[in-house]
Amino acid sequence: MVPLWMYLVVSAAVFCIGVYGVLARRNAVAILMSVELMLNAVNINLLAFWRYVAPQNMAGQAFAAFVFVVAAAEAAVGLAIVIAVYRNRRSVIVEDVNLLRG
């Protein structure tokens, strides 16, 4: 079997790429896709730890399941917002949505 740390490195890599995407992309939909990447990386992390540390305890899988749920809900709502914003402002560039500018 592959050692645990390799799974962790993969998950960390995907997570950090997701972070980069969230911080650096202009398009809102692209940002949402990066967020999905981050959540996916979290899942990989969780399940890796479940398998290697306590495979009898269902906590790991259950947690991962809930992460799925949350990701789904968040994606739905997020995209709904993007569409609503697009309808109002004709733009999905998040930099343009700066009404809270101080």
Binding site: N27, A28, I83, Y86
Partner: peptide
């Protein structure tokens, strides 16, 4: 979700 994203891309197409 991925399909949803594709729909969203379609709906915000012009950008």
């Amino acid at each position: 979700i991925a399909i949803l994203i594709i729909f969203a891309v379609m709906l915000t197409r012009s950008m």
